[in-house]
Write a protein that binds this DNA or RNA. Structure first.
Lengths: 228, 228
DNA sequence: TTATGAAGTGAGTAATCACTCACTTAATTG
DNA sequence: CAATTAAGTGAGTGATTACTCACTTCATAA
């Protein structure tokens, strides 16, 4: 597929993506190394996790790590690189675009999108946690996150919001403000469910999400929804 | 060592707070050490910042650091401890309670609270950034953050929200959902202003905040506000 | 069968880590 | 003045760091 006009990842990350192996091309031990690194990086952070601890946890000699990954940082990139594909590849974005263009009520579109993205986030949580955590300290990761994930998502959202404002479906507020409200609702939901996991038992999760979307739609829609 | 209970941050923090010196009791060099550590911890993280780099940046011998702080972790606690006072001391919480009880329209109360907390956050940003970042990796800091800051704030908010629901000022939704919306709005505002700082030039900042509160109030109030 | 090379090992490397300590300096106090 | 003490120093500590390399093992291919 052609992706030459797209802003590329940082060189280091791009390089890593090119050398990515599919799971069945990998050795058993390489897989164990990656699993151990994911667990440790997520829990203690990249800099606080040593290669010796990764090796011990993977049940592998320390040298084996460097047979598969040139440096510790390369190992990090190999872990998080796939996340940028999973969340932003053209194929996936097509899914999102399809939901947006389905000509459903805005409330259902947003609910569907939230569920879609939240499920994806949950499936890949340990790796995404690493991405979010390490982005705070590594400018290249932060850049990739903002440029490849946030920016695209925001662009899609703003286009749709603008359209719905023009059709008087949304209130005549700044596009930026409405878009921010949409993102804030999801961000806040994720924050609360991670900060107070016991309050977000599986049964109540979707009810909570629907409450959040209810408030959001009540806040941005021009006409109040008919149903509660 | 690992057999005794995890030291509660309350204890560690209390100990640290007791030994805290006011700025004019501190040596010039101690102040420089703390400034250097704040800059480095905020930018690179605690584990990625070495004491030798802190010393170099502060223009001080490495041994001097340990004359003032027993360990590197004690230095961290000395930096972030005051944040828990600034944001949660009874004195400060009285300020917040006063705003809540001022019997103003909910919209103005929320706006006032947002401005109050955001100003406090901005004034202390480098240190608060360290608190938020390191909480991800240090369970004791996370615990102090949730128990001493988030929990109290949430309690206050929920009491007020419950009251306003009973008075039909807010919609009859779960208290938790409305409270979450209030926090999400501020959280999202902070996230956007940090992620896209160039879009949040000082002049537009308050307009952006008012837009956010407008949407929030529109979403949770039983009657739409009279004015835009 | 032999040759090749990837997978894996673990002892070993220099560099860096947080931290210590014997020491000097300078101000305070009895 | 003599004695004490806190502030500050910088060389030095053992432990740990990311990483290397000579080596073995073993499956595959010529």
């Amino acid at each position: 597929m052609a992706h030459e006009h797209k802003p590329l990842f940082d060189e280091a990350i791009q390089e890593m993506l090119n050398s990515l192996k599919t799971e069945d091309e990998m050795t058993e031990k390489q897989r164990r190394i990656m699993e151990a690194a994911i667990a440790l990086f997520a829990e203690k952070g990249f800099h606080a996790s040593s290669t010796s601890e990764i090796a011990r946890r993977a049940g592998v000699a320390e040298g084996t790590i460097f047979k598969h990954f040139k440096t510790k940082k390369d190992l990090l990139y190999a872990l998080i690189g796939p996340m940028f594909i999973k969340f932003a590849s053209p194929l996936i974005l097509k899914d999102v675009k399809q939901i947006i263009n389905e000509d459903l009520p805005a409330e259902e579109v947003i609910l569907k999108l939230y569920r879609n993205r939240l499920a994806l986030l949950e499936e890949n949580w340990p790796r995404m946690r690493i991405v979010l955590q390490e982005a705070l300290f590594h400018p290249d990761i932060m850049n990739a996150l903002l440029e490849n994930l946030v920016k695209d998502a925001r662009g899609l959202a703003e286009a749709s919001v603008k359209n719905r404002i023009e059709q008087s479906e949304f209130r005549p507020l700044p596009v930026k403000a409405i878009t921010r409200a949409i993102f804030s609702t999801m961000l806040g939901y994720v924050f609360f469910s991670k900060a107070f996991p016991d309050e977000y038992a599986n049964e109540d999760k979707d009810k909570d999400l629907r409450d959040a979307v209810d408030i959001l739609m009540y806040g941005i829609a021009n006409k109040r929804p008919d149903s509660l």
